Simulated scan of single mutants.
Amino acid sequence: MSSTAPDDGNDAGTEVLPRPGLTYFIGRRIVAPLLRLIYRPRVIGARNVPRHGKIILASNHLSFIDSLVIPMTSPRRVQFLAKSHYFEGTGLKGAVSRSFFTAIGAVGVKRGAGQAAQEALEQSRRIIDTGAAFALYPEGTRSLDGRLYKGRTGIGWLALTTGAKVVPVGLIGTNEVQPVGAKFPRVRRITIAFGEPIDVAHYGPAESGRARRQATDEIMAAIHALTGQELAGTYNESPPANTVERVKRALRPERL
């Protein structure tokens, strides 16, 4: 794996965020080669990942280990958001959790809908604006049935707002390594395909809902071309808990 780091690309007004430190580089130099030796991942199109500048790696999501696989095989350093509780534990278990997620380039953030979702997008934007390679799952959460779900337009907003190119990523077989409900991963060969970078700027400004939707749909189509998954044609989300939640979803057709 290349050790090339991205340009800092900091603007004077950009908030400086924590960057991966020693633990990350230990994971990259020791853990990643070990995992590559065990799982022998088939990596396709790594040259499609620009070695410098702002990029977003947009991937399908089949398993918990996806967040290991992408940093393990990406030719440059990757950061992404993870649930804040992974960083907030106490005692030995909390320390191990923090070290592990730091090692794979995660940044803690509170998850949720509405304001929480928008704050997560803003945190993502700040990371991308440092010149980092930022990874995310446009589906929002992992697919439990193996189908590819409709992309949430946060990816379109991020790409249009930051001007970052989007590299579609197709993960194949990670659900066989750690199926839903499995406590421990199994040894199975996986495939990681990096597609050609996509520039969505021609769709218009980030303020346009139509531009966000069109940009997102192009990105999801590129992911589908890499994976060949069956298309679900809907968003991946749990059923509404009550009538109020059903009404909120009906009034908020665009998913962040």
Score class of each variant (00 low, 15 high):
117 A>Q: 06
176 E>S: 05
128 I>P: 02
203 Y>T: 13
253 P>I: 05
250 A>K: 15
197 P>D: 10
233 G>S: 02
13 G>N: 13
131 G>Y: 09
107 V>R: 05
204 G>E: 08
240 P>H: 02
256 L>P: 01
137 Y>F: 15
232 A>L: 11
70 I>N: 01
46 A>N: 03
45 G>P: 08
51 R>V: 06
236 N>K: 07
73 T>C: 10
26 I>W: 13
134 F>R: 04
56 I>L: 13
117 A>C: 08
61 H>I: 03
18 P>V: 05
115 Q>K: 12
77 R>D: 11
251 L>V: 07
198 I>E: 04
28 R>H: 10
32 A>T: 03
246 R>Y: 07
72 M>A: 06
92 L>E: 03
162 T>K: 11
84 S>G: 00
114 G>D: 13
58 A>G: 09
147 R>F: 00
37 L>M: 13
180 V>D: 13
75 P>D: 05
241 A>S: 12
206 A>H: 11
73 T>D: 01
191 T>D: 01
174 T>V: 10
40 R>Q: 13
17 L>S: 07
57 L>M: 11
55 I>Y: 01
246 R>D: 09
22 L>P: 02
227 T>D: 06
138 P>A: 14
194 F>P: 04
216 T>A: 09
150 K>N: 06
137 Y>D: 02
237 E>C: 08
143 S>E: 04
12 A>V: 10
147 R>K: 14
113 A>S: 14
224 H>V: 00
165 K>D: 10
84 S>N: 11
74 S>P: 05
53 G>P: 07
166 V>D: 07
84 S>L: 01
213 R>Y: 06
105 G>D: 10
194 F>A: 11
160 L>K: 06
62 L>C: 05
103 A>K: 02
208 S>G: 07
86 Y>H: 14
153 T>W: 02
62 L>Q: 14
175 N>D: 15
76 R>N: 07
85 H>D: 15
172 I>C: 02
86 Y>K: 02
245 E>R: 05
71 P>C: 08
221 A>F: 00
70 I>P: 01
140 G>L: 08
88 E>S: 14
205 P>A: 10
235 Y>A: 09
135 A>S: 15
238 S>G: 00
64 F>N: 10
71 P>N: 04
153 T>I: 05
27 G>V: 02
178 Q>A: 04
140 G>M: 10
229 Q>Y: 04
131 G>S: 10
6 P>W: 02
220 M>E: 05
224 H>M: 01
126 R>C: 10
120 A>C: 09
208 S>R: 00
183 K>V: 01
243 T>A: 14
16 V>Q: 12
